[in-house]
């Protein structure tokens, strides 16, 4: 069977190998490339819709899976499942900022104290974009736009990706950053002096998603793999590796109306593009 995996290769490959050992089913995987901002596979699934090559899409976030479902790329029923979660966090350089002094809310990032010392990925891509769009629902468009303007006025470093944010914060080029929990964990494993601030009501939780492709050739084996990925043991392995943060989503974080978010995607992205001019 063929799997397209936007979950990072270092995490996904051992799990897929274990599935092959357990079931004897050979998995041929294509992993997403950071060169195309991790939506290469989503675009590929769209272009291959007339003759699907992929049986199962393992995504490390939710928005794109919902977009694919909306475009009719996934099975009609029981199309996708969320597994585990990671989260969007504020990361600090522990040599430069104490936990007590660190900003506890996203609104605090607009304080002049942090001018030029904040790093985040360009908010038109990836989970940063999704977080910003979810905050728009959480706060309402007017408050959100004011916050975006204030954040931009604080001269943040807009970087190419979330791992870069952690590296910049770890090296002290920025003092605080907004990034994904798995990237912070990777930074800590690499010995960077970084720490994540606790979850709060503005946190976005990001589950992995496992989606089945409409018209694929190996539907039964795809079902088997989905069941394998949903097992608590598999999720625990992903948590231990740092790919996921937890099994069950905690009762905090922004609540997202995904249908509304997808409807507003173009207009909200235009607003973001206008505000965060580089």
């Amino acid at each position: 069977m063929t799997v397209y995996a936007s979950q990072d290769q270092v995490y996904a490959e051992p799990i897929l190998s274990e599935f092959t050992r357990a079931t004897g089913i050979k998995v041929r995987a294509v992993y997403d490339s950071e060169a195309v901002k991790t939506v290469g596979l989503v675009n590929r699934l769209l272009r291959e819709a007339s003759n699907p090559q992929c049986d199962l899409f393992w995504n490390n976030e939710e928005l794109r899976t919902r977009q694919l479902a909306g475009r009719g790329i996934l099975r009609e029923t029981n199309a996708w499942t969320a597994i585990g979660y990671r989260s969007r966090r504020i990361v600090i350089n522990t040599n430069l900022v104490s936990t007590a002094r660190a900003p506890s809310t996203l609104a605090s990032l607009t304080n002049v104290e942090w001018r030029g010392r904040i790093a985040l990925a360009y908010p038109l891509f990836g989970t940063t974009a999704t977080h910003f769009l979810a905050l728009r629902q959480h706060w309402g468009p007017a408050q959100w736009e004011t916050w975006c303007h204030a954040l931009q006025a604080n001269k943040p470093l807009l970087l190419e990706g979330n791992s870069t944010v952690v590296n910049f914060v770890g090296r002290g080029e920025a003092w605080i950053g907004l990034t994904d929990s798995d990237d912070i964990a990777a930074g800590q494993r690499a010995g960077l002096p970084v720490a994540a601030l606790p979850l709060n009501p503005e946190t976005l939780l990001i589950p992995n998603t496992v989606a089945l492709i409409r018209g694929s050739r190996n539907q039964d084996t795809a079902d088997e793999l989905r069941a394998f990925l949903q097992r608590p043991e598999t999720i625990e392995r992903l948590i231990a590796a740092g790919a996921l943060e937890g099994l069950q989503a905690p009762g905090t974080g922004v609540t997202t109306d995904w249908s509304a978010l997808l409807n507003d995607l173009d207009s909200a992205t235009d607003t973001l593009r206008a505000i965060f001019v580089r």
């Binding site: 063929t2 990072d8 290769q9 270092v10 041929r28 995987a29 294509v30 992993y31 490339s33 950071e34 060169a35 195309v36 290469g40 675009n43 590929r44 272009r47 990706g161 791992s163 952690v166 590296n167 990777a186 930074g187 690499a190």
Partner: peptide
């Protein structure tokens, strides 16, 4: 990377693609 990233079939990864992905992980 640009030309083949949307095309390469399973098992056809190149060093350039691998380098980009490893860079992402730091």
């Amino acid at each position: 990377v640009e030309t083949i990233t949307l095309l390469y079939p399973p098992g056809s990864e190149t060093l350039a693609l691998r380098a980009f992905n490893l860079l992402h992980y730091g």
